[in-house]
Design a protein around this nucleic acid. Sequence first.
DNA 1: TCCTTGGACGAACACTGTTCTACGAGTCGA
DNA 2: TCGACTCGTAGAACAGTGTTCGTCCAAGGA
Lengths: 266, 266
Amino acid sequence: MSAQMPEIPWHKPRKAEPRQPLSRSLIVETAVRVLDAEGLSGVTMRRVAQELGTGPASLYAHVSNKEELFELVLERVVSEIRLPPRPEPERWKEQVTEICFEAQRVLTSHRDVSLVSLGSIPLGESQLTITEFLLDLLLRVGLPPQVAAWALDGLGQLIDTDAYEASVYSERIARGTDIHQYFGQLHSFLLALPTDRFPRLQGMADTMVTGDGDERYAFKIEVFLRGLESYLPTDADTGTGTGTDPHTAARAAAPAAPAARRRLDA
Amino acid sequence: MSAQMPEIPWHKPRKAEPRQPLSRSLIVETAVRVLDAEGLSGVTMRRVAQELGTGPASLYAHVSNKEELFELVLERVVSEIRLPPRPEPERWKEQVTEICFEAQRVLTSHRDVSLVSLGSIPLGESQLTITEFLLDLLLRVGLPPQVAAWALDGLGQLIDTDAYEASVYSERIARGTDIHQYFGQLHSFLLALPTDRFPRLQGMADTMVTGDGDERYAFKIEVFLRGLESYLPTDADTGTGTGTDPHTAARAAAPAAPAARRRLDA
DNA sequence: TCCTTGGACGAACACTGTTCTACGAGTCGA
DNA sequence: TCGACTCGTAGAACAGTGTTCGTCCAAGGA
């Protein structure tokens, strides 16, 4: 480096570095970096702004909200999920399972970002692409359209919830809690339950703590898929058309839901 | 009211009202009241303390954390869930469905309290009571113990996630969003999707927005229960003993989970 | 050339959870 | 009866938070 000239006093430079200008994508990328480093609760407007060498007010020119920033971050993360090249209806259950695990892999690799996904309808481009793929797959299998549509809800919830739960564990062990000790404590807690009030839980303490996150996740997916399988039309129905003739027996899906309405008052 | 005498000056009352002393349960009850009035984000230490006519520091003598307060609140809410008088294995699917809807009724009647329940293992007394009931019911039906144990996980997640989702909608319509207009916008959004990239979603826009929260909830429960049903031992196996002989075919539950381990680094 | 416009940003507002420290009343032993 | 010694009650403060206001400056159009 050459010798640097002193600043002329009355030039008051105010910003020595000619930083690259702010932009939506730059902010989102920085937020993802902060997310990976410090978790979702570490992603504050100040923290992101500081990482960009500016103040929090500067972000509001490109992002209207912290909530909007979070949704942009989620969409960016979801875009990392890779889909299979093409749907394979003959092994649809395996393929759905693979997608679920791929989604969980990506989501949990970004700490607890799945918390953002829990309350929001997935309308981002990547999220819609995944939904489209799954919907196409389920329809090709022969599931009635209404069943397939509603099944997407269930699958999405399964993925999000499990990813969030897994991230909670990750955060916990990141904070120093030994996972074996933790499950040991849980085990002895169950064993210490009063036998007269909790005979099943007390007696099945071993079984309750069996299986890690992946095993339990795989089980839940399998149960859901077996349930979906039961909605497939029988052989007698499928012999007619080109292959998929839905819209037939999807009405008996929901048993009479209790009349208890969600309260709609303001 | 009778005329009130003035205070004697040198008595310096300092607290006109002889408030009842603080206690854990009083704090929790107040927190629930604030929760019902202003939602979970409105439950702050200051708000609860103010409701009790004191400062936030006073709460920390009875509650170590805001997190602990939240869990106490959750346990209090869960204790409102009423269980059937006795398990009825012959109609287990209906009974599980009823419990799920009862749980959702209670949870959603307390705004977004289900958010607390999402990341925590249900170890409160009421939560354990519900778990014990469901576990007993599933075992009586004849499900293998490992299947029953893992199924509790799935049911709990289903209840919590759906309650949270329902509460998000409730909050949204409480903030003034018209729900019909909202679904209308969603519908036209799906219709406006490019047909070449999202043919299924675009073509099934009607089907996608069909059904309210209860219908979809009932569907997910039904799918899960049908999946569980497939784990029941066949008739050839059950003819031997008194009725329930588990621990047999529970091993093939989980298909080979991908080796992708959750990262365990600090 | 001036003038408008839009991004950048310091300061501030109204909050948050939590801790420190002092105060005051109650109880228990002497 | 009286001191000592707890323990619940709080005021004040600390280090944060999301968001807004008003100012500033540089670039672009007329």
